[in-house]
């Protein structure tokens, strides 16, 4: 079994424990290896993401972390933590506000904004921040299997 799977067990929450206001957050940083892996996976080799000099010439401090890798952290949040094991996404809206660079530490924060027990669904507010700066924010809808 891959190491990631062996070390990773999704959190389990009863719907009654997911009232509006429930929060979870964790920090992450994107590595060069993850950038390379994503470029290969997505087939997106845009030089803003893979060419340091090109990115700098365009006014960025370095290669810009793929938005897809930020969304991957949203996936980790929903699938592993809030709400965790029984979750499946049904909607995601996200605005990217500022770039994240390789190796920088960012923090993803999620909060339940609405919990519908009738249809076992949650609405989450999501923010990705670097210090006090908001890099991305949005909303996700999540269904919970029985």
């Amino acid at each position: 079994m891959p190491e990631l799977a062996a070390n990773s067990r999704a959190d389990v929450h009863a719907l009654s424990g997911l009232a509006a206001g429930t929060r979870y957050a964790f920090e992450f940083a994107i590595s060069d290896q993850q950038m390379t892996a994503f470029a290969e996976l997505a087939g997106d080799c845009n030089p803003l993401h893979v060419d340091r000099e090109f990115a700098r010439a365009r006014g960025y401090a370095g290669p810009v972390v793929y938005g897809g890798l930020l969304i991957a952290q949203v996936s980790r949040m929903i699938g592993m933590h809030l709400p965790g094991r029984d979750a499946i996404w049904t909607r995601l809206e996200i605005d990217f506000r500022a770039p994240l660079y390789v190796g920088e530490v960012a923090r993803i924060e999620a909060e339940v904004s609405h919990c519908s027990e009738a249809v076992r669904a949650l609405e989450l507010s999501i923010r990705i921040v670097r210090g006090s700066q908001v890099l991305a924010q949005g909303e996700a809808s999540v269904s919970l299997s029985q």
Partner: peptide
Amino acid sequence: LRHIRLIVTVERELEVKFTT
């Protein structure tokens, strides 16, 4: 899925809660 979104949106917009 849209049915779920309808129920959730109505709960939020009209500030009501339903049961299953």
